[in-house]
Design a protein around this nucleic acid. Structure first.
Lengths: 226, 226
DNA sequence: CCCGACTGGGTACGGTGTTCGCAAAGGAGG
DNA sequence: CCTCCTTTGCGAACACCGTACCCAGTCGGG
């Protein structure tokens, strides 16, 4: 029922000038999240980082979720869309995918965002427009193109999640525990294929970057049946 | 450092017989989550549903996250793997995808689970084994097959998320707010492709089921370059 | 000029995960 | 059988969380 934050003016003109701003608050939250994850972004911590009282944040933001919306849209702005489009739709889509992957690398807490449950902001709109622009030459229904952009974004987030869970030190404990469990329970009799996998050397593989491009190409091909 | 719950025996033999069990606790959590989402699964509520004291749960589970691990593995058990494999690897993989999609429909809170951050349990192992079994006929490195299973699972979760966010009533408010924002800000001059999309009728499309199959086929094809 | 809307923020409420300490229970060894 | 000693259940407490309320102080528009 209530309007989203993007429709509420930041300032009405009346009263004393605000001491902070949505932008500064979002930046403080992003700094916290970059350093310690999304769970570390609490109203008290953000307010503390700004030297403000906790309750003051609610003059700028109706709820913590809105703060997160602000943060998400702020980092989405790093993509600096719109950008020119080459005309090769697959190349342009891959470029968007690479951009987004870089974003996830810079802000790992973004994998903790549930897309769809979060409100879209101006930079999110620009992102969607860029995605549709990349696919504009294709003769497909607009809805299918939007689905393709959503799928592209989702698959990039899957890659980011995977990359993160294999590298991050915060999940190292859990990985070690899981590895110990697997070692204890995976026997060739009960789980032949898994056991064979542990036996085979963990070769370097085709390189994550090439895999990334190949998966996205295949995905978009399937979605837009080019 | 600490062993995962799956390596800790539920009972040592000493002392009085436990009044509850991991299974019952997980079932209580699942009931709560099915009805009201993962956020409703709190130690106090689960304990209350069982008629137990809150602190008692910690005799069965080291942490709330472990309770969630229990819940995830319990619902994974609904898949009842292993199942026979037909020999047509794509058909078998699609079958697994459909099974998983059904699981998400029965337990929508599963989309709130961050895969990889959660510890895998016995039924999760069985799931992976089933996935590898489906791909066993393919002459590809075991690592690539595991990646394919992970991607398959991830894409299914994306579909589930999408299906949920367009249907669920709990997100209706946010959707309405976003729709109002888009209506206010998307003009043909600034966002031509998005504006065109709103202009075009929202035709029924090719059907979500057919899309699902097509995307997964394309994805696995790209991953396993068949 | 001054009224009224706005800002900052201390305090408080109800919720959360988790720890501690203790009373009671009951299997294991003598 | 009897005693120990581990284990169980759990009330109380701690530290944190998001958020609502209220009030004092500060400006801008009529």
């Amino acid at each position: 029922m209530n309007d989203p934050i993007w429709l509420r003016p930041e300032r009405t003109g009346h009263g004393p000038a605000p001491e902070y701003s949505r932008e500064r608050i979002a930046a403080a939250g992003i700094a916290l999240a970059d350093a310690s994850g999304l769970a570390a972004v609490s109203m008290r911590k953000v307010a503390g980082a700004l030297g403000a009282g906790t309750a003051s944040l609610y003059r700028y933001v109706a709820t913590r979720d809105e703060l997160v919306d602000l943060m998400v849209d702020a980092v989405t702005g790093e993509l600096a869309y719109p950008k020119p489009v080459s005309g090769d739709w697959l190349a342009d889509a891959l470029s968007i995918g690479r951009d987004l992957r870089g974003l996830y690398r810079r802000h790992p807490w973004m994998v903790e965002i549930h897309p769809g449950a979060t409100g879209i902001g101006p930079n999110g709109v620009a992102y969607l427009e860029q995605g549709l622009a990349a696919l504009s030459a294709l003769d497909r229904p607009a809805q299918a193109k939007l689905e393709a952009v959503a799928m592209l974004s989702g698959v990039v987030s899957l890659f980011a999640r995977d990359e993160l869970s294999t590298r991050s030190s915060t999940t190292a404990d859990g990985r070690a525990a899981t590895a110990r469990y697997l070692a204890a329970v995976v026997t060739p009799e009960r789980y032949p294929h898994l056991a064979a996998m542990f036996g085979s050397a963990a070769g370097p593989g085709p390189g994550a970057d090439e895999l990334f491009e190949r998966v996205i190409s295949a995905l978009l091909g399937g979605l837009l049946n080019a």
